[in-house]
Amino acid sequence: MSAAREIAILGVGMHPWGKWGRNFVEYGVAAARAAIADAGVLWRDIRFVSGAATIRNGYPGQVAGATFAQALGWQGAEVNTSYAACASGSQALAAARAKILAGECEVALVIGADTTPKGFLRPAPGERPDDPDWVRFRLGITNPTYFALYARRRMALYGDTPQDFALVKVKNAEHGLENPYARYKKRFTIEEVLASPMVADPLRLMDVCATSDGAAALVVSSLGYAERIGKAKAPRIVAISTVTPSFPSELVEMPDIATDSAVACAPQSFRAALPKKAYEEAGIGPEDVSLAEVYDLSTALELDWIEDLQLCARGEASALLRSGATRIGGRIPVNPSGGLACFGEAVPAQALAQVCELTWQLRGQAGARQVANAKVGITANQGLFGHGSSVIVKR
């Protein structure tokens, strides 16, 4: 990727994740102030505030950018709010990058924060029969059920076992022990995971993530601005992919399926398309990646993402896991932060939290969970109704 398309990460900040029961704005302001301090810039110098929306927190959550700008103190910055469910943070980051690359501002603040209810997440009120996620919730397919279907698919196609899924939890729990922002800090054995209550067969309680309160924030800038303030070596965002699925269209001449290969009209999974576009934009390949932060709503889903990111061939993620390659110290550590297994879902914050982790890793500031010689990190998220994201960060 040309440096003209890159932006610098000047500062990152988080509010610890848990079940605090307070207003989401409090968490977002804490994360934002930490990111601003880390960046070494003044609040008044930030000219664009991009918020990730939280639809569970009323109107202030739906206009999160303005809400955070007001809470930090009006100073004339432009505001933006983006919504894409679990990919909201990346969408808000993409808006900030576009503003910077267009030359309309030099430094921007991106914030995501959430206060979540107890139990399963539910869709926002309203009738949306064209929204497949709304439909699945109305049919009773909550997130654990949805991801259990993915897990069953892995078992049928690749021979994965509940023990493989449990090993993902064991690995991520070990990583999260060293993260001061993680909600859960407890070691597990495979036997303990397999003994936890069944939620949606084959996924047990320890296979699925909780819902959490928390926040994450980034201060990003043009490369020129970073150089002027002495941060020319700051980690850089070199790609943000937010593509949607692609399916055959009736407007395109279709092959005769009786005589032509069905592959010619096969739909393209957006989970696979997301990193493909990110790699193309960054001008690198999966062989260049040092670590990955992926959306592990379930243990089995992490294995899917490993393959979607092309870190191994399709169907080989469990073997990669069992080899130790995805642990810290292995060839390609996955979720060194501990992932959602240790954080839980704070929906608009989680894509930004992943970028925070990559930033600390690329700076060499991750402490006991540091990935040696980390140079390139990639993230992956799945949102509602075809929204998703993948971000690549380099040093």
Rank of each mutant, 00 (worst) to 15 (best):
I55F: 12
D114L: 03
E174I: 00
A217I: 09
A37N: 13
I240M: 13
L93E: 03
D207M: 04
L340R: 13
S298E: 07
G388H: 12
A374T: 13
N335W: 08
L109I: 08
V79Y: 09
A341F: 00
T161G: 11
F270M: 12
L203I: 03
L203D: 08
A85V: 14
Y181G: 08
G367Y: 06
L301Y: 06
A282E: 11
L167G: 01
V107R: 07
I36A: 12
A292G: 07
N23Y: 01
C312R: 10
D288S: 14
L149M: 15
A319W: 01
A148S: 15
G58A: 09
A156W: 00
Y27L: 06
L274N: 06
A94M: 09
L297D: 06
N172L: 01
N381P: 05
A372R: 14
A217G: 10
P180C: 10
W20I: 02
D131I: 03
D201K: 07
A374F: 03
V376K: 01
S90T: 13
G344S: 05
R204Q: 05
S221W: 05
G21Q: 14
P275S: 15
N23E: 05
A173T: 11
S249E: 14
A52I: 06
R183N: 06
R138H: 14
L93W: 03
F48E: 10
A156K: 07
F147H: 10
R327V: 03
E26K: 08
A77S: 14
A264F: 07
S269L: 04
Y146P: 14
L218F: 08
Q310Y: 00
L303F: 03
G330Q: 05
S2H: 11
L10I: 12
D201T: 07
G119D: 09
G112D: 02
P286S: 15
N373Q: 13
W74P: 10
V263A: 15
I237L: 12
G283H: 10
E78D: 13
T54E: 12
Q268E: 14
A317R: 04
Q268F: 04
E357L: 13
E78C: 05
I190A: 15
G377H: 08
S323D: 06
R363H: 03
L358M: 14
T242M: 13
A372C: 06
G112K: 04
F165Y: 15
V220Q: 01
K231F: 02
